[in-house]
Design a protein around this nucleic acid. Structure first.
Length: 504
RNA sequence: GGGUCGGUAGCUCAGCGGUAGAGCAGCGGCCUUUUAAGCCGUUGGUCCAGGGUUCAAAUCCCUGCCGACCCA
């Protein structure tokens, strides 16, 4: 960027001033011995202990007078003339610095004047508590570590321009504390998912993102070209078919967390690339996987959020939705449809169902002329039932036409052994008793490919013919899981760099 | 793809035919424990872009770009 303004110009002049004094404003390294937020917390603990009239037992926290070396970004500056207060921030939080020119000495005081808000510095000093009770560091020396040549976003309102927040996420992270929290917690969620599966004896793998035939889901893929091989590849739309190959190969419990790519619309709930978890367990079935999903999500909620009652708040901070992860409902697809569409929904003729859906339920926009009967019912489910499933619900006994790749239920052969776990009005995790009959699988995939032989993943079918153990499988959309757990209503607020149209 | 709303100083926004504004940030002062520090002074603009209407356009009209939300 070539844009300049007076604020950038002033910072460049300060940079030149540092260079002129032989100070390197961009150091190669610095070794702090503590973190800002941690030191602040520990010093406050000590102050609390010290405050009681008769201190009892061993001191806690970090005492006044302790020497520390800290590094971070200057995020506030309060000039008192002969006394200056700065806030220094690192990933752990902030702490106040007290800087007195006379303590620094004349040369250092001159250099101090050339610092700007948002610069990175390292400091050395001793801990103390101000008259106002603020845990602080009395700075004895400092080192410029990384100069900021552009003004940071404001401190009051933070950064609110959504476009800048998404395009320059680093500014969002710098200015908006709650946003930083969301992404730190997303990292924590991923960590807990991994440890959950590892503890259960699962193996984590990585399978190809570039695939000759994109399979495992019905979605538009992105296409790319490999120069050396001279052929086209597709970015994967699902993980499934490679993980099942591993079941064939004898990896009995396997999971992958990875990016899928779907060349479709963008919305509050859709990003073209999104993170998917898929897990497969040999000798398990959909019931095994329901238990897995419930245990996993409970575990994450407790370890990351610290509660099973997840609160979603509006801009005013009022709770408008609470998701209770301590009760998991199980309900049949047909029963849920009847709740919205009438108890006799499945007893009337297909023509009557279509009429009711279009006229009574006002779904004309969602039901295409060529829809089959089961698709009419599916529209009712998707538009009228799913959005109301805010509390965790396993929807089971889906009609077999709806999920052609799953195994038939022994107790009701018109349905399949499949669940859709819905939370927060969205499908969060589908789970299957996976098809391991290669002949049935071939028929289903051939039907799905609609006679286009090139769309058939022959290598996958050959793998199944070598024998696959019965297995339960799940997929969990990690972004939507994060939205649900972290109280975010837009997928862009749980993806660090959401896709936007490039600016020219 | 359709509809609604938005784009003005570094940030947050006001102005909606008649000289381009405020708060914060910045800069210059004062203040030796302040913390949204305070007080005095002050700099800063391609009003998203391009066309049109008009004596006069940030403001009205058209086209385009980018974003948010809703719908499909």
């Amino acid at each position: 960027m070539e844009d300049t303004n007076s604020l950038i110009e002033q910072r460049r002049q300060n940079l030149a001033g540092l260079n002129a004094r032989g100070v390197n404003p961009f150091m190669n390294s610095f070794s702090p011995d503590a973190q800002c937020g941690t030191v602040r917390t520990e010093l406050a603990r000590w102050a609390e202990w010290n405050k009681s009239p008769e201190p009892k037992g061993e001191p806690v926290g970090l005492a006044e007078g302790t020497r520390v070396r800290l590094a971070g970004r200057i995020t506030a500056h309060r000039d008192m003339g002969k006394s200056q207060f700065l806030d220094l921030r690192d990933v752990s939080g902030r702490i106040q610095l007290w800087v007195q020119p006379k303590v620094l000495g004349e040369d250092a005081a001159e250099i101090f004047k050339l610092l700007d808000l948002a610069d990175f510095i390292g400091i050395e000093g001793t801990l103390f508590i101000t008259r106002m009770g603020e845990p602080s560091v009395k700075v004895e020396s400092f080192t410029p570590l990384g100069k900021s040549l552009r003004p940071p976003p404001g401190k009051w309102h933070g950064l609110e321009d959504t476009e800048i927040r998404y395009r320059q996420r680093y500014l969002d992270l710098m200015a908006n504390e709650p946003i930083r929290e969301v992404f730190l917690k997303r990292s924590h969620i991923l960590k807990e998912i991994r440890s959950f599966f590892h503890l259960r004896g699962y193996v984590e793998v990585e399978t190809p993102m570039m695939q000759a035939i994109p399979g495992g889901a019905a979605a538009q893929p992105f296409k790319t070209f490999h120069n050396a091989l001279g052929c086209e590849f597709y970015m994967r739309i699902a993980l499934e078919l490679y993980l099942k190959r591993l079941l064939v190969g004898g990896v009995d419990k396997v999971f992958e967390i990875g990016r899928n790519f779907r060349n479709e619309g963008l919305s509050r709930r859709h990003n073209p690339e999104f993170t998917m978890l898929e897990a497969y367990e040999a000798y398990g079935d959909y019931a095994t996987m329901m238990e897995t999903v419930e245990s996993l999500i409970r575990h994450i909620a407790l370890t990351v959020v610290g509660t099973l009652k997840i609160e979603h708040r509006n801009a005013e901070g009022e709770v408008f939705k609470t998701i209770d992860l301590s009760h998991w409902r199980r309900a049949r697809y047909k029963d849920l449809v009847c709740e919205k569409a009438g108890d006799d929904w499945f007893m009337v003729s297909p023509e009557e169902r279509r009429r009711r859906a279009v006229e009574d339920l006002k779904l004309s926009g969602d039901i295409a002329a060529g829809y089959q009967d089961f698709e009419v019912t599916a529209a009712v489910f998707e538009k009228l039932v799913e959005p109301t499933l805010i509390q965790p619900t396993f929807v089971t006994h889906l009609p077999k036409q709806l999920v052609p790749l799953a195994k038939i239920s022994a107790e009701d052969p018109t349905t399949v052994e499949v669940f859709e776990c819905c939370i927060n009005g969205q499908e969060i995790a589908p789970g299957y008793t996976e098809q391991n009959d290669p002949i049935a699988q071939r028929e289903a995939l051939e039907h799905q490919a609609g006679g286009e032989q090139q769309k058939l993943d022959e290598d996958f079918l050959v793998a199944l013919e070598h024998g696959m153990p019965p297995a339960g499988g799940i997929g969990i959309g990690i972004d939507r899981l994060c939205m649900m757990l972290l109280g975010q209503e837009s997928i862009r607020d749980v993806i660090l760099f959401p896709q936007l149209k490039p600016k020219v």
